[in-house]
Design a protein around this nucleic acid. Structure first.
Lengths: 137, 137
DNA sequence: TTACAAACCGTAACGATTACGATATGATAC
DNA sequence: GTATCATATCGTAATCGTTACGGTTTGTAA
């Protein structure tokens, strides 16, 4: 997903297009990895001095709800990234820069067989560490 | 791991044995699943009225550090459970009661091959849903 | 039984997030 | 273009889980 696709989706759902909304989307499109609300606030302070927490979190929640962003919890803070809509996969996540690498392997088919009487609602498979670029920092 | 093994381990590492420490361990041994700090406080209030946050969190951290408890993050709250030390495995976690079921499948061997230049520090594989007992509640 | 480090208490502070009344602003209809 | 109105935003206070701290109590080992 990219910024213009996301704006299109928001319009279709009846949400208004604002400068702040666009800038938030652009930030995540360019980030190419997981970022926190704080990262985003810091970035937006440059162009939108005094932007409200309300605006930040309201839009993060909205984007997450309509599927523009996906989220994960990393040492007590929520992290967000542009959603990859094309197919099911998981991520390696760099602890330093937040960048991700797609992992195509998913063992849920096998796992489901061992959970016959269980109602499965979701699963999380994430690998953490340092990406090649961050190993010598 | 059970309460007496845990106490033994603490002693060996030079930590003191107190009534509160024992009761915390017993709570997790009997819980048989993930519990929050709040759950624990609620339980201990009965027998140790006015117990301090400091005591709760200090011991939770300690237990986590020495490997008595393992931890996961579930909708913004840290959850703890008695550690299963015997072998590597993952968990199905019931959203309602916090009970877990061991999953023996782990795809990390395959995954490692696709992350040749990456430094892997850890991974998380969890399945969420409702256990058979909680499906009709 | 004394001595002392470790454990604990009561409470304040912290950081991330949520919430709210008042104001501003896109989008639509005229 | 302008009026209308629901939605978005602001400024700020409140909330929630967690952490921190000075003072007191308590296991433990000599």
């Amino acid at each position: 997903m990219n910024t213009s696709e996301a704006i299109e989706l928001l319009k279709k759902k009846g949400y208004k297009t604002t400068g702040k909304r666009k800038d938030i989307l652009t930030y995540f499109e360019e980030a190419d990895g997981y970022r926190t609300a704080k990262d985003l606030i810091q970035h937006l302070e440059e162009t939108h001095k005094g932007i409200s927490f309300d605006t930040i979190y309201r839009n993060l929640h909205l984007y997450n709800e309509v599927g523009i962003l996906e989220t994960t919890e990393l040492n007590g803070e929520k992290h967000f990234r542009m959603n990859c809509t094309h197919h099911h996969h998981h991520h390696f996540i760099c602890k330093d820069c937040g960048k991700t690498k797609e992992i195509e392997i998913c063992p849920m088919d096998e796992v489901k067989q061992t959970l016959a009487n269980y109602e499965i609602e979701g699963h999380k498979f994430e690998i953490y560490g340092l990406c090649p670029g961050c190993q010598h920092a």
